[in-house]
């Protein structure tokens, strides 16, 4: 029973880490860009960080759901969805939103590497969890089938016995 909890707990912790990186541990660049109108807007990396906070929260929530549900296939499904969330978490800073152009900026040196590593770990953990759970589910089904067939033969024997 103990080992059943491990993937869920790991995913919750990694999800929280993804939330904490842009928020606390390695914040994105703080400087704001001046617009032509004279106002200031945050840079792209800031929005990437925001998006990661949301994704991290969702991943942590998925981890909690995995702890809450018992059926193997349900947990495997959550794991697959969480793996996809992890892929999104990798795509946000690299493709979808991105960050500063200079590789020396805070977002490129700390924030993004941290969230990309964490999200990659999430993807790996989720894929392994899903595979293990799917396999154990199949084994259970095979066992159930075998039991069902033996039950049938016993029933037949029982029936012949009654006839005698």
């Amino acid at each position: 029973m103990g080992s059943r909890m491990v993937p869920g707990i790991v995913i919750v912790l990694l999800g929280l880490f993804v939330v904490l990186v842009p928020a606390v541990i390695f914040p994105t660049c703080e400087t704001q860009i001046e617009t032509a109108a004279g106002g200031t807007v945050p840079m792209r990396c800031f929005w990437s960080g925001r998006a990661e906070i949301g994704i991290g929260a969702l991943i942590a929530a998925s981890g909690l759901l995995m702890l809450a549900f018992r059926p193997a296939l349900v947990r495997a499904g959550i794991a697959v969805a969480t793996a996809l969330l992890g892929v999104l978490g990798i795509l946000i800073p690299t493709v979808l939103i991105g960050g500063c152009e200079s590789p020396m900026m805070d977002c490129n040196t700390t924030t993004f590497p941290a969230v990309i590593v964490a999200n990659s770990l999430i993807v790996v953990v989720c894929v392994i969890t899903a595979l293990v759970l799917a396999r154990s589910d199949r084994r259970l089904q095979v066992q159930a089938q075998q039991q069902a067939t033996t039950n049938v033969t016993l029933d037949e024997r029982g029936a012949t016995h009654i006839e005698h």
Binding site: N108, P113, V117
Partner: peptide, 13 residues
């Protein structure tokens, strides 16, 4: 590997 390579710029700075 997950620390040294992604954070190489940070480390060098």
């Amino acid at each position: 590997a997950l620390v040294v390579f992604p954070f190489s710029t940070f480390i060098s700075m």
